[in-house]
Amino acid sequence: MTKIIDLSIKEKTYKSKNSQLSILNNFNLAVAAGEKTAIVGESGVGKSSLLNIIGLIDRNYVGAYTLFGSKTNSLHTSELAQWRNQKIGFVLQESALINSLTIEDNIKLPLLYAGSGKKEFKAEDFESVVDAIGIKPILKKKPLECSGGEKARAVFARGVIMKPQIILADEPTASLDVENKERIVTLLFKMNKEFSTTIITVTHDLEIANRHDRVIHLERNK
């Protein structure tokens, strides 16, 4: 299979006023197109930071990164933004919904940012995602009118609506009950099967992790 991610991190550091934290030292990751990879590990080892690096949000590290066959350090700001919108779907814990917009408009937001370069979008694609994760009743509500679980499912829908080549999911099922957790995982894996979408999931749920093709265990630097 074609390698879609080839990442080598020598070091990633966080600096505060009185200390410096080093994570992901000498970490290497290669992911094939269409692969389902889970990332597990205790809090503070760099799981979310790794997703931010893979998703081109965080570029402040020492290392090299080739994505979709291109060296990311040579990409212009506009290219990075386009890739983040059209090629990479984010389901991140920090992905706040915009409170002034309805849930439906929040989900469709990536289509507005895509502009003239957007992929062909069909109404049935939206309906399919909404029905699959059971959020049709809340589409006209605003985020402040929704529960945490409902908002989590809306964030997920927004992350997959563009049918991206890569989906980066940070604890996508953490706030969900068993039924809705299964809905999310089923849709995630359906996209992987139908569109060869590459899935990278950070999770504390080992049952979810073990349903991926591969599980990567991050450990604290010695």
Rank of each mutant, 00 (worst) to 15 (best):
M162S: 12
K141N: 02
I98Q: 01
D125R: 14
K87E: 15
A154G: 08
A123L: 06
L109Q: 01
G115D: 12
E120S: 15
A96Q: 09
P137F: 00
M162W: 13
E127A: 04
I103S: 01
K119W: 13
T102G: 01
V129W: 01
L92D: 01
K87F: 08
K119A: 14
A114S: 11
V91H: 08
L139H: 00
E150I: 08
I161F: 12
A157H: 00
S175T: 15
P172A: 11
A114V: 11
V129S: 03
F90L: 04
Q82V: 12
K119I: 14
I167N: 05
A123Q: 11
K118H: 10
L168R: 07
E171M: 09
T173Q: 04
Q82E: 15
S78N: 12
I57D: 00
Y65A: 05
Q86C: 10
G117L: 09
I135Q: 02
I161V: 15
G63M: 03
V62I: 11
V160S: 02
Y61F: 04
F121W: 15
L111H: 06
G149H: 05
L101V: 14
F121H: 15
G117P: 07
R153A: 06
D125M: 13
S74P: 04
A132L: 05
N99K: 00
D131I: 10
Q93Y: 05
K122W: 10
K163T: 14
G63K: 04
P110E: 01
V130R: 00
P110N: 06
V160F: 07
I54V: 14
L67G: 01
G159V: 15
L144Y: 08
V62H: 02
V91C: 08
S100V: 13
I138A: 04
G148H: 05
I98T: 11
A152F: 07
V155I: 15
V130E: 00
A154V: 13
L111C: 06
E79V: 13
P172V: 15
G134C: 09
S95M: 10
S116M: 12
E94L: 08
L97S: 01
A152L: 06
S78D: 14
F121Y: 15
G117E: 07
A114K: 10
A81S: 12
I103T: 08
A152K: 06
G55P: 06
T102H: 03
G63P: 05
E127D: 09
P172W: 12
D170H: 05
I135M: 04
A96L: 04
N73C: 03
G134P: 08
D170M: 02
R84T: 11
I166V: 14
T77F: 12
Q82S: 15
E127N: 08
E127T: 10
P110S: 13
R153T: 13
D170W: 06
I167W: 06
K163F: 13
R158W: 10
E94K: 08
N99D: 05
G149M: 03
L75A: 07
D58M: 05
A81P: 09
S70H: 07
